[in-house]
C-alpha cells in the first residue's frame, strides 16, 4: 500500500535519513521505533510532504507522494497526526474537526464522519465548543486523532501519540489506535514507547541513525537480543 524506497532526507546540509526503506501493507499496524533523533518524525514528515527527499521514492497505491505538494497528500487518504498534537489552539474542538475534512471527498461526508468521531470520543462532543488550546493533554490527543479521522484516512500516521500523557492515558491511546485499525484504517505508528507498541503491532522497523537496521513482526523484535538490550533495557 505504502512503499518507501531508499529515501535520503536533509535539513539544510544535515542528512537525517540515509537510504531508509520500508513498506506498509493494507490493514496493518506498522511501527517505527528508534531513539531520539533516529529520524522517525522526519520519516513521517517526508511522507506527508512537509519535507522532500533528495533521493528515493514514496509510493502510495501507485501515486508518487514525493512529487505531490504537501497540501494535496491528505486528499489521497494519507493523514498525519503530528507530534505534540499541533491543534489550532484558538479554534473550538468542532472547528478543529472540520479543518480535518477540507478535501472534497471528506467534505461531502463531513456531517456523518463528525457523528462517528463523536461516537468514538464522547468527551469531544461534550467539549465541542471549547477552545482546543484549553483541553487537557489526553483530550488534545483525542482531538488531534479525531481531526485526522475527519479526513477519512486510508493510512493514518501517528507521531508519538503517547508523548506527555499519564500511563493510564497511554493505554487509552493505544486502544484507540487498535480500534481505528479494526475499522479498516491502516496505521503507521512512530513511538518511543517500544514495549507496548511492539506488543500491539503487526510488523515493526527499527531506525538507527537514519537507516532501517532491523525489521520483523512485533513478536520477533521483542525477542531480538539487540532490541532487548538497546530499547527494553533487559
Amino acid at each position: 500500500m505504502l512503499k518507501v524506497d531508499a529515501i535520503d532526507v536533509f535539513y539544510g546540509d544535515l542528512q537525517v535519513l540515509w537510504g531508509s526503506s520500508f513498506e506498509v501493507r493494507e490493514k496493518e499496524i506498522v511501527v517505527l521505533v528508534g531513539a531520539n533523533g533516529a529520524g522517525k518524525s522526519t520519516t513521517l514528515k517526508t511522507i506527508s510532504g512537509l519535507l522532500r527527499p533528495k533521493a528515493g521514492t514514496i509510493v502510495f497505491d501507485g501515486v508518487r507522494l514525493d512529487r505531490l505538494p504537501a497540501d494535496r497528500i491528505i486528499g489521497h487518504g494519507v493523514v498525519h497526526v503530528p507530534e505534540a498534537r499541533r491543534l489550532f489552539r484558538e479554534m473550538s474542538v468542532e472547528e478543529n474537526m472540520v479543518m480535518g475534512s477540507l478535501a472534497p471527498e471528506a467534505r461531502k461526508k463531513r456531517r456523518e464522519t463528525l457523528a462517528w468521531v463523536y461516537e468514538l470520543f464522547p468527551r469531544m462532543k461534550e467539549r465541542r465548543k471549547q477552545a482546543a488550546g484549553t483541553l487537557s493533554g489526553g483530550e488534545q490527543q483525542m482531538c488531534a486523532i479525531g481531526r485526522g479521522l475527519m479526513a477519512l484516512p486510508r493510512l493514518l500516521m501517528f507521531d508519538e501519540p503517547s508523548l506527555g500523557l499519564a500511563p493510564i492515558l497511554v493505554e487509552d491511546v493505544f486502544n484507540i489506535v487498535k480500534r481505528i485499525n479494526k475499522e479498516g484504517v491502516t496505521v503507521l505508528l512512530v513511538e518511543q514507547n517500544v514495549r507496548q507498541t511492539l506488543a500491539l503491532c503487526d510488523r515493526a522497523y527499527v531506525l538507527e541513525n537514519g537507516s532501517v537496521v532491523l525489521q520483523g513482526t512485533g513478536k520477533e523484535l521483542l525477542a531480538d537480543p539487540h532490541v532487548k538490550e538497546a530499547y527494553l533495557g533487559l
Partner: peptide
Amino acid sequence: TDIGRSIRATAQDKDAAVLMGVNT
C-alpha cells in the same frame, strides 16, 4: 466558511494547516 477557517488555521499553525490540506 472553509476558506475563512483555513485563513485562521494558517495564522495559528501553518504546518498543521498544510497537513490538513490547506494550500497556504
